[in-house]
Design a protein around this nucleic acid. Structure first.
Lengths: 198, 198
DNA sequence: GAATACAATACGACTGGTCGTCTTAATTGT
DNA sequence: ACAATTAAGACGACCAGTCGTATTGTATTC
């Protein structure tokens, strides 16, 4: 019984560490040993927790998106806040966070879509699911904002959500090479504060 | 003299092959041997042409963007064509190409921004330069389109060009995991055919 | 409740292979 | 003959993954 709890803890430790290292150095740029050393778990144990590096990576992807879903839900569920403002506040929170991290990392999903999209079917599907979950939540927010009259109705909430998610991925890449939050700000301004406005 | 010509040819071969392989498998996912075998150049020769893998990669990046610049210039310089239509035609050409390649690869710049943006300063700078050259050309196109009255004047050509480039990067990632051109189409529709319209 | 048997988990040394890079020798042009 | 370029193969480091052993928890038996 103590065992399975330890297993859970070790799995989570590995997933958390995976998020950090895979985001910063990529899949092929990060060795398992590096991850294992960081959380002080022996090499041989890794394969008790995960089938191989690839499926581990797919799990890291699902693990990664969870906090973002929760954070965004938090902003959208505040009863006193309209949905468009909630979305804006959420993205501003992300921007603050990214600035604190000195523009390092960006988004694990974006980074791995580029690196593994063509070569790992397992990770591709995991990425697809994670991005779609995230997109669906944003879509709900935009839908609410449409009902509240803050966002235009002649575009579907889904197509706007897709555009926002995709543009956000693009500006995160741009942020990394420019080491600047300007692209992030203007993405929000242009879409949430411009194109999407009712 | 024959020597330096061969050197040039070998360098170009390596750069061309690098574009293909780095785009498909990433920097860390591609071994030098793999590249060298593909163009039948001995392993020992690589370091005659390039300092190391990292600076080679930075050169591959500059080498990669050149044809896109030329292709886009071609569309913008047609005297009988207005600039907005030229831009649309250019992106439609890209979409056709990507569909032919079965959504594989996407954009080398986007993929490497995610993979190397944080870890290789040399590549980061090379990526920055390539993206900015590309962005500047699109900006010129949008400027012309503004003068022709096809594109709105209340947004700067530069900020629109940035948004277009960044969104394009994002939708290319999305294309890879969805294996679909739908994101590409709706990017063009929303921006060139919607938000940017005068 | 204690002793035993069994299964699940933990572990680190080890595998074959590949990595980027370098040294050194052969080859080439002048 | 000499200097510059090219190439072959060796280098140690590292890779993901495996295997046999040790340790632990649980179930069974008395």
């Amino acid at each position: 019984m103590v065992r399975v709890i330890n297993k859970k803890i070790n799995r989570d430790k590995l997933l958390d560490q995976g998020v950090t290292m895979l985001m910063g150095q990529g899949f092929h740029g990060t060795g398992l040993k590096e991850i294992l050393d960081a959380v002080k778990i022996p090499k041989g144990s890794f394969y008790n927790y995960f089938e191989n590096k690839e499926t581990y990576c797919a799990e890291v992807i699902s693990h990664y998106i969870e906090p973002f879903i929760i954070q965004l839900q938090g902003h959208l569920q505040k009863p006193e806040m309209d949905a468009l403002t909630g979305l804006k506040n959420y993205f501003n929170e992300l921007i603050d966070e990214l600035e604190k991290n000195q523009f390092k990392g960006g988004c694990l999903l974006g980074n791995l879509m580029g690196e593994l999209g063509d070569t790992s079917e397992i990770c591709r599907l995991s990425l697809q699911e994670a991005v779609n979950r995230y997109r669906d939540l944003i879509k709900q927010g935009l839908l609410k904002a449409q009902q509240e009259g803050a966002v235009r109705n002649d575009l579907s909430a889904e197509s706007m959500a897709n555009l926002l998610v995709d543009t956000w991925q693009g500006v995160l890449l741009r942020m990394k090479i420019e080491k600047s939050i300007v692209p992030l700000k203007s993405c929000c301004d242009n879409l949430l504060g411009g194109y999407f406005k009712a």
